[in-house]
Design a protein around this nucleic acid. Sequence first.
DNA 1: CCTTTATCGAGACCAATCGTCTCGACAAGT
DNA 2: ACTTGTCGAGACGATTGGTCTCGATAAAGG
Lengths: 195, 195
Amino acid sequence: MTGEARRPHTGRRRNEAARRAILDVAVDLLGRPGDTPVTIDTIAAAAGVGKQTIYRWWPSKGAVLLEAMAEHAGTAIPVPDTGTLRGDLEAFLTATFRAAGERLTATVLRHSMAEAQRDPHAREQMRALIETRRRVLRGILERGRERGEVSAGSDLDLMVDQAYGVLWYRILTGHAPLDDAQAAELARALSAQAG
Amino acid sequence: MTGEARRPHTGRRRNEAARRAILDVAVDLLGRPGDTPVTIDTIAAAAGVGKQTIYRWWPSKGAVLLEAMAEHAGTAIPVPDTGTLRGDLEAFLTATFRAAGERLTATVLRHSMAEAQRDPHAREQMRALIETRRRVLRGILERGRERGEVSAGSDLDLMVDQAYGVLWYRILTGHAPLDDAQAAELARALSAQAG
DNA sequence: CCTTTATCGAGACCAATCGTCTCGACAAGT
DNA sequence: ACTTGTCGAGACGATTGGTCTCGATAAAGG
């Protein structure tokens, strides 16, 4: 990631390779051990890019981090269809916890959420990303309701928040792990409370 | 909070009034509308205190914010004893959500959690505070288990995280409110999944 | 072709902010 | 009375987010 082959100039059009380098470097720096500073200057330097090239395309540092996070954590979690609510939940939550619990990803998520609390641009991107994720899980619950596995009185949004709440709470405080066992148990608990 | 009666000098001993002013001002500034900057300088100025008086007693800005939060949000939530798990949960969660959902408190919590992600001192204080809170709720669940209202297979720590997870997740993203109705529904859901 | 135009990398520059250090004043301890 | 630790005030250095400028480069467009 440090000074090798020169990036070809693309003249009047946006340099896509530079964009990639910036986003990749942002994630890479966040993952470095110790308290490596992740600043606009270090990102620009490591990506071999001028600061203006960053600010020409992103409104703030937080916006860069959030987009980097969205791409890094954007591994599409497949929407399962096992035939039962519990099965679907277990598959979805296991994949989700596994992705979010991975060390680098967890670090990126932590910093992104922190940044979203102070940078309005980042906050907006975070809200959109959160909303997208919530909708997917809510869809799984709605299918369960149509099958009669979720009682009519259940608050689906609250159930969604119980799942993602556990995820974020643990990522931010680090008091407990996010692993397959926890995902399975959460799936069991949620489907039990739904009936 | 701005320049009135002078604070009496206490000579060689710590000035408790100054300590109070610092912590109160920190919360007060966080609650100001708009993007009022909450910096060490503004805190010191508004509290009528020298910066050194802050750094003599706290290791970092984050540590000040976290202690201010701990005191502000430290309203002891009474541990209920209604005789049933659901009753206890509803009472506890209602009081908790009501406190955390209050505008100023929510703002303080948001900033504190963000600060905890970048300041090691704040992070440590946050961890301790989180742990204290979790223990109280876990105690309620354990009582329920002794009464046979919680199946042996239930993961109490996970249940605790479902509750506090919802709280923090909503405070940080702001996508849904924390009110009595949500607390009651969460109490219902958790006690349903426990049986 | 040759002019215009937008991006690029590099870095100077500004403003905000964290944290350190110094200073004179003051009062408790002795 | 002398020493010692805190107090309020503020200068100072370092870091960092964001703006601005500059020369180089290549696409657009007649």
